[in-house]
Write a protein that binds this DNA or RNA. Structure first.
Length: 735
DNA sequence: ACGGCACGGGG
DNA sequence: GTGTACGTGCCGT
């Protein structure tokens, strides 16, 4: 028999590892003993004492092994300690650390994931085809065309009866399985759901908000009815605590995970990886990172790449330091200024441009890491003080003798992404699959760069981050120079992309840069026209706000309201409709000619608003909150909405979003000012002028280079509505 | 005028 | 098991 590794977890009661395999007939569960180990490096002459002390507290299974305790270091002797009790790993490590005065004993392999240890030891991997029950791998995790199981899945949803915001106290109104509704008395609904899941025996249960609501709610309702509901193949579940955390420069909220046993619960809304790259992206990454799809679906690509680095280190004879914190090397003030700059940005030329080329480097930063061998241990290594491989501007020398850990991890990822990109253009039926995989790998590559500069990253080092940026700037500047020499005008450039105007041979230019720089410069496309938008206060080109129409008819939009999460549907649609009108133009001149007709769309939108004819769900504003209600010092719309929710007993965590309709923006009263979305009845009187203002801003954002900035549009609107009041030109009859 | 606050990326 | 730094714009005081 054979099967694919579907799920794996440590059973802390039996201290055994449980692995679930997806087989052609269903699923198989294999449980076996596995003893994790931690390692300690004691100072010269103190190993004996440590061994004795360990024996004193009854620790058995201590042996001496040879491992690399740092990246790029030779193997040395360390103590390896078996920890048969899974829950004792951390406490034992803490005890040993204490014995060494938190200083003398260096601890390794303490905070590794249990499944990762197990997979590494057994040489199997998630979603890898495995012979059963021998656990012999029939697969290799670097294969490209690997066999994939047909996973059975159901989509599970639930509706709660009761108030405007569902709570765990409300009875179930209905449950949906793949769209089919089950309703009736609550105990009957729960019973039918249980029977259906048993009968269908899915491998995957998809939900929306399953971690934060659907599954814990169903669980609670079953308990309230004195029933048991078991959605997994095995009893029990794996939960964690929810928490707010700081990432991407903002606070996010992660609800507690509700993981099933023997089955995979994927929360479509919570899972970044699933949402971005689907099941194929998840499977691809699962195989590469040794993290099961259920766990991986709740992680960021950054954790996945970090995990891959750990795997690579383990594979090459390293032990992984417990509390990693490599301090930055000393730098002079001058060096700090020179090194602390990010990617290079050319100032975009504001306005519309016709016939523009866009060229992008293929995964620029990861390619730099590979080509220039950038890794924590290769940067200013001890073995090549005379290295001729030097970072531009900074002068850091890079190892010439050994390839670093990071490039080792990245090479296959880059290779795979390139292959998948090519394959998806060829193979019809598998196109979607290859696209999902390549999308996931792109994310993996992007976050890998971020991690080099992340102070908590295990294999991060700020000098790597600086070096990558320095190489990147150098490459972009050289590429722009080469473009100039070929008669192209550089309209804009940012990090890894250039926008060029001119009739030179673009393919030949890309080829030249690729040879010169050693990293692929690819033609992204040719724009019929592209608009670079100005900074609203200075009028200078804004760095990352533009929109354009490719020859294919496809639009590329960056940084405008339409792309922002806090934009109401009304403004999103307004911008989209205006862009659709503008995109009928095929060159810069006809674009300019189309501008007035795009204003008609704005006028139509404004009329509807003033007529009170816009449904409130198109007017809802959504904002993420970064702190708890009591911590806000400034009263604004979001705070007003938060207060309303709070008054009704609902508390939002930092990282969650509030949604609300604006009723009276000037009001000091939360109740009058906004209405929180859950309390909307649909008949509310929204503040039309506030939304007209938002519409004018949305339109002005697109048209400011063409004489129609927000203020101009407002003046125009005032003129028009005055006439409208006189009955000469009623705004709503304009269309 | 100035501080508080939220958003972006890629496709 | 969480990429940083920063530009940008709006709003409230």
């Amino acid at each position: 028999m054979k099967g694919w590794v579907l799920d794996c977890y440590a059973d802390h009661e039996t201290n055994r590892m449980v692995t679930w395999f997806k087989t052609n007939s269903g699923a198989e569960r294999i449980e076996e003993e596995f003893v994790p180990r931690i390692c300690v490096r004691a100072p010269q002459g103190r190993t004996g004492k440590l061994v004795n002390d360990l024996a004193m507290i009854g620790v058995k299974g201590v042996s001496k092994v040879r491992r690399r305790t740092g990246l790029g270091e030779e193997k040395r002797e360390v103590l390896s300690i078996a920890v048969p009790d899974y829950s004792s790993i951390q406490p034992l490590a803490v005890t040993i650390d204490m014995w060494g005065g938190y200083r003398d004993y260096l601890l390794y392999d303490v905070d590794l994931r249990m499944d990762q240890r197990y997979f590494t030891d057994r040489k199997i991997f998630p979603m890898g085809l495995t012979e059963l029950p021998s656990l012999r791998s029939l697969d290799s995790n670097l294969r490209i065309d690997y066999p994939i199981p047909r996973l059975r899945s159901v989509d599970l949803g639930v509706r709660a009866g009761g108030g405007s915001i569902p709570t765990f106290g409300d009875p179930i109104a209905s449950v949906t399985v793949d769209g089919a509704e089950i309703d009736g008395p609550e105990d009957k609904v729960i019973g039918e759901l249980q029977a259906l899941i048993r009968k269908r025996d899915p491998d995957v249960i998809y939900t929306r908000k399953g971690d934060s609501f659907v599954l814990p709610y169903l669980q609670k309702r079953a308990e309230a009815n004195g029933m048991e509901l078991e959605l997994g193949r095995d009893r029990g579940r794996r939960t964690a605590r929810g928490k707010s955390y700081f990432t991407y420069g903002r606070i996010l909220y992660k609800p507690p995970a509700y993981k099933l046993r023997g089955r995979v619960h994927i929360d479509r809304e919570t899972s970044f990886i699933f949402a971005e790259s689907g099941m194929h992206g998840l499977i691809e990454l699962s195989r590469l990172s040794l993290i099961t799809i259920q766990d991986l679906s709740r992680m960021s690509p950054g954790s996945a790449i970090s995990s891959m680095q750990i795997n690579e280190a383990l594979r090459t004879g390293h032990v992984v330091q417990w509390k990693k914190n490599r301090p930055e090397d000393f730098k002079t003030a001058m060096a700090l200024i020179a090194s602390d700059r990010g990617g290079f940005i050319y100032e975009p030329k504001v306005g519309v441009h016709g016939g523009v080329w866009e060229v992008d480097f293929f995964s620029l930063y990861p390619s730099i890491m590979v080509r220039h061998n950038i890794s924590p241990e290769t940067m200013m290594c001890g073995c090549c003080p005379q290295s001729r491989h030097v970072v531009p501007e900074l002068g850091y020398r890079i190892c010439e003798r050994r390839t670093g850990l990071i490039p080792h991890v990245l090479v296959p990822v880059l290779k795979r992404r390139r292959l998948y990109k090519d394959l998806k253009n060829k193979e019809g039926a598998k196109r979607e699959m290859y696209e999902q995989r390549s999308k996931m790998l792109k994310w993996l590559l992007v976050t890998c760069f971020g991690y080099t500069g992340y102070r908590n990253a295990r294999f991060g080092r700020i000098e790597c981050h600086e070096a990558i940026n320095a190489f990147g700037r150098d490459i972009l500047v050289r590429s722009a120079d080469l473009a100039g020499k070929r008669g192209f005008e550089v309209l804009h450039g940012i990090v890894d992309s250039l926008w060029l105007l001119g009739e030179g041979d673009i393919a030949s230019y890309c080829g030249e840069v690729t040879r010169e720089v050693g990293i692929d410069l690819q033609l992204e496309g040719r724009y019929d026209w592209i608009v670079f938008l100005p900074n609203i206060s200075t009028g200078v080109g804004a760095l990352n706000r533009y929109y354009g129409r490719f020859e294919s008819g496809e639009l590329k939009l960056r940084g405008i309201a339409l792309r922002r999460r806090d934009t109401p549907v009304l403004v999103e649609d307004l911008q989209r409709d205006m862009l659709e009108r503008l995109s009928e133009a095929r060159d810069a001149a006809s674009f300019l000619a189309a501008v007035p007709s795009s204003l008609d769309i704005l006028d139509g939108c404004i009329s509807k608003l003033r007529d009170g004819a816009v449904p409130v769900d198109r007017l809802i504003l959504r904002k993420r909150i970064s702190q708890r209600l009591e911590d806000y010092v400034q009263f604004n719309d979001s705070v007003a909405a938060l207060r309303q929710l709070n008054d009704e007993g609902f508390e939002l965590q930092p990282g969650q979003a509030v949604e609300y309709l604006i009723l009276d923006p000037g009001s000091r009263s939360s109740r009058d000012r906004v209405r929180a979305a859950p309390f909307l009845e649909g008949s509310e009187r929204y503040d039309a002028e506030r939304y007209v203002d938002l519409a004018l801003r949305g339109a002005g954002e697109l048209l400011s280079p063409f004489g129609w900035a927000f203020e101009d549009l407002r003046a125009r609107d005032e003129g028009r509505s005055k006439k409208g009041q006189q009955g000469v030109l009623p705004a709503h009859e304009e269309k």
